[in-house]
Design a protein around this nucleic acid. Sequence first.
DNA 1: TTTCATAATTGTAATTATTATAAAATTAAA
DNA 2: TTTAATTTTATAATAATTACAATTATGAAA
Lengths: 138, 138
Amino acid sequence: MKEIQNIGSELLRFDIKPSYQRIKIYDYLLKNNIHPTVDMIYKKLADGIPTLSKTTVYNTLKLFEEHGIIKSVNIEENEIRYDVQTHIHGHFKCEQCGAIYDFDYNYNDLKYSGLENFILNQTDVMIKGVCKTCASKN
Amino acid sequence: MKEIQNIGSELLRFDIKPSYQRIKIYDYLLKNNIHPTVDMIYKKLADGIPTLSKTTVYNTLKLFEEHGIIKSVNIEENEIRYDVQTHIHGHFKCEQCGAIYDFDYNYNDLKYSGLENFILNQTDVMIKGVCKTCASKN
DNA sequence: TTTCATAATTGTAATTATTATAAAATTAAA
DNA sequence: TTTAATTTTATAATAATTACAATTATGAAA
Ligand SMILES: [Mn+2]
Ligand SMILES: [Mn+2]
Ligand SMILES: [Zn+2]
Ligand SMILES: [Zn+2]
């Protein structure tokens, strides 16, 4: 889990003005490292912030990503998920419980053929299968 | 490019009844190895088959995938793309021209940490960047 | 403190991809 | 030819996301 002492100054470090909503959203992401969807974030925070608009959640996450403080992950077809973990790592989605796990892989050993003279900006490794917990239940 | 002599018998090989629409859709996928979206497929085929329904395209692609004759790829957030190439390979998306390229990588050298006792069913490697053609123009 | 400009938030409507459903058309079997 | 099963079609319903304009909050100048 990512440890941040002061959320406001962390946002400022990324040139993001720390409004009340932005702080709450980043705080949620830090404390819930579950790659949540917009809807999950909105529903959880709407309890504590009754005036919160889903548009604000969309705007904020877009802003966060543009400023590089979070990453979006494209795991399932129909929804974007968000990740405070910005270092290079892969994602595993359990086909049974739906949970998403982080994992590390040997990024530097990856060799490609067919991409000569291409400029590579971002690599994502996605694996689907059955997680340890679900596998032991079967 | 995948070479198929008889589309009808190839569909039958995968236990798919070769209806007129199914043959046309599979034929399109074989001849247009561009990882098209449902909409791209529908629009192109609707010229030749005026009665074609988009629902049929959705149904057919779903059926094809269930029978393992094609794969769906999840490259951009908001849309599914389809691929007749079913062997393990990666996908590169050019951020400038939007084209999607296939590439090969050393699948067996991929080493993970954090997935001990997990069952891995499907691995996808996605890279974003600038393709050779676009890079040479800049 | 009041005034004003700017930025952030909100609510609503519009867009887009996808799924659900039921009727119509086609195919295959009796 | 009847009949049943399968496939296709049209339409409506969902769901995620974006567009947009009004409202609210913030912060500096007067
Ligand atoms: Mn992650
Ligand atoms: Mn491919
Ligand atoms: Zn699981
Ligand atoms: Zn390009």
